[in-house]
């Protein structure tokens, strides 16, 4: 199942990249389509943050990992670079697991 997901994702990812180079420009230049494309990654990434930090199977939980993400948000707010943000989140969660 993992291999199926990997290959299918790769094929579709390539087709999407190629599509932009190959289709007539007018197809994608519609203002509403542009607006949709601008906010689509924002919505999906926000949703992934929510699921990955608050979801556990079908339950909403607030655990060590959630606190790690809160620390990451504070680090981002303070303009910390990406590796520091990820490391702080991991250290927070690991620290709480050790308690």
């Amino acid at each position: 199942m993992i291999w199926t997901a990997i290959i299918a994702t790769s094929v579709i990812a390539f087709m999407l990249k190629y599509l932009g180079q190959a289709v007539p420009a007018a197809w994608l230049e519609n203002a509403r389509i542009q607006k949709f494309a601008l906010y689509l990654p924002t919505a999906l990434l926000a949703a992934l943050v929510a699921v990955q930090s608050l979801g556990s199977e079908k339950n909403i939980v607030f655990d060590a990992r959630s606190i790690g993400v809160v620390v990451a948000a504070v680090a981002l707010f303070l303009k910390a670079p990406f590796p520091v943000v990820v490391l702080l989140a991991a250290l927070t969660s690991a620290g709480i697991h050790q308690l």
Partner: peptide, 15 residues
């Protein structure tokens, strides 16, 4: 989980 990788993934999405 012992190394906090469970929090690293959502933190990466947030980044």
């Amino acid at each position: 989980a012992a190394w906090g990788l469970d929090a690293a993934v959502p933190a990466a999405f947030l980044g």
